[in-house]
Nucleic acid binder design. Structure first.
Lengths: 110, 110
DNA sequence: TCATTGATTAGCGCAAGTGTTAATTAGCAG
DNA sequence: CTGCTAATTAACACTTGCGCTAATCAATGA
């Protein structure tokens, strides 16, 4: 299994994807805050966090008894680069204007 | 499971990722050509193709006894859009110049 | 019709993933 | 030291995923 497939595997679970998206929106969060996001038990969340960490998606900061998690930008970058590597295929078949506008530095308004 | 997690799950296998990348590089291919790419049996490849098709990543064209597969650009677009939706997080923490250059229409030289 | 070829589906076994509750580890406060 | 809290790990059950071989389905050609 490559880094890329491991990354995709880590994101191929609704709970884990939610955790990653939440951390991207809200920045570093303690495990307790993340456990409260879902209906599943705390140990289950802890294991999902471990999967994400071992796949390189999350960084863990230890402070006392608390563990603070944050998304590693490199992981997102890995996915982004993969799509970019193949954009000659998919972007050529679609309207690429949206993509260009979305990545234009002048267009940062959301 | 959402469309996005299903897409990630489909890409979270080295065999399937290889199939998708091969099809993006070489365009539409018959199942026979794809079966020859790996060491696993033809039925196993057929099943991977089914997973990819049901996840919306591949299109299947039937012609006689032959099945021709190709990547659906929309699927790649889904992944690309996801990274773009969160670029405020990951691109801000890294050197964004690479990404912008990579997507600049003038920079298509690879 | 019948055999051949391309491709898929069926059935089986085994490994991996995900949930639970219970137990454990580690830090902090008294 | 003892208890409390945050978080993880252990143990178990169940489900899903992936490989194989055998069987089936569909189109083609003698």
């Amino acid at each position: 299994m490559t880094d890329l497939t491991r990354t995709f595997a880590a994101l191929a679970d609704t709970t884990r994807l939610s955790l990653v998206e939440y951390l991207m929106r809200n920045g570093e969060q303690p495990a307790s805050a993340l456990a409260g996001l879902t209906d599943i038990s705390a140990p289950a969340v802890s294991r999902h966090l471990k999967v994400l960490r071992e796949a390189g998606l999350l960084h863990q900061r230890v402070a006392g008894t608390h563990r603070y998690y944050s998304v590693r930008p490199e992981a997102m970058r890995l996915v982004s680069d993969w799509t970019i590597d193949h954009r000659a295929f998919w972007a050529g078949s679609l309207d690429r204007l949206d993509t260009l506008l979305a990545l234009d530095p002048e267009g940062e308004d959301e």
